[in-house]
Amino acid sequence: MTALLTHYLTLCKEQHIQKDEAQIGALKKLDNLSQNLLNYVTTPSFPFSLWVKKKPLRGLYIYGGVGRGKSMLMDLFFDHLKDVPKQRYHFHEFMLMIHTEVKTIMDTKGGNTDHPLEKIAEKLASQALVICFDEFHIKDITDAMLLSRLMGFLWKQGIVLVATSNFPPDELYKDGYQRNLILPFFKEISKKLETYNLNGTQDYRQLFKAEKERYFLTSNSKSTQHLQTIFDHLRQGSPITSKKLSLKKRHWVIPKYAGGVAWFQFDEICGQALGASDYLELTHHVHTVLVSGIPELADESLDRVKRLITLIDVLYDREINFAASGAKPLTELYTDEKENELFERTSSRLISMTNYSQ
Rank of each mutant, 00 (worst) to 15 (best):
L147E: 01
K123S: 15
P56T: 09
H80W: 03
L150G: 12
R205L: 07
H99L: 02
A125D: 05
I320P: 04
R304P: 05
G65F: 07
E171S: 00
L245Y: 10
E300F: 00
W51Q: 00
G200R: 00
I120H: 07
D175H: 11
I98R: 10
T229K: 15
A121D: 00
L245S: 06
H90M: 01
L193N: 07
Y334F: 13
D278F: 06
D303W: 03
V314Y: 08
D143Y: 06
H7S: 11
T241H: 12
L247M: 07
E93N: 15
A210H: 14
T113E: 15
F153G: 00
V291R: 01
L302P: 02
L234D: 01
I254C: 06
I182Q: 06
K13R: 12
S301F: 11
E211R: 13
E14W: 03
L150Y: 09
L38K: 14
S277V: 08
Q272E: 15
L302N: 04
I62M: 03
Q225R: 12
K70A: 09
A327T: 06
R304C: 08
G275A: 14
F231N: 11
E344T: 13
F78A: 06
P255G: 02
G200V: 06
K123H: 13
E319W: 14
V253H: 07
E21K: 13
A273M: 07
P295L: 12
L274F: 13
D299A: 14
K54Q: 14
A273N: 15
R58H: 07
K187G: 01
G293M: 05
V305Y: 07
K244Q: 09
D83M: 05
E341A: 10
K54W: 10
E21R: 11
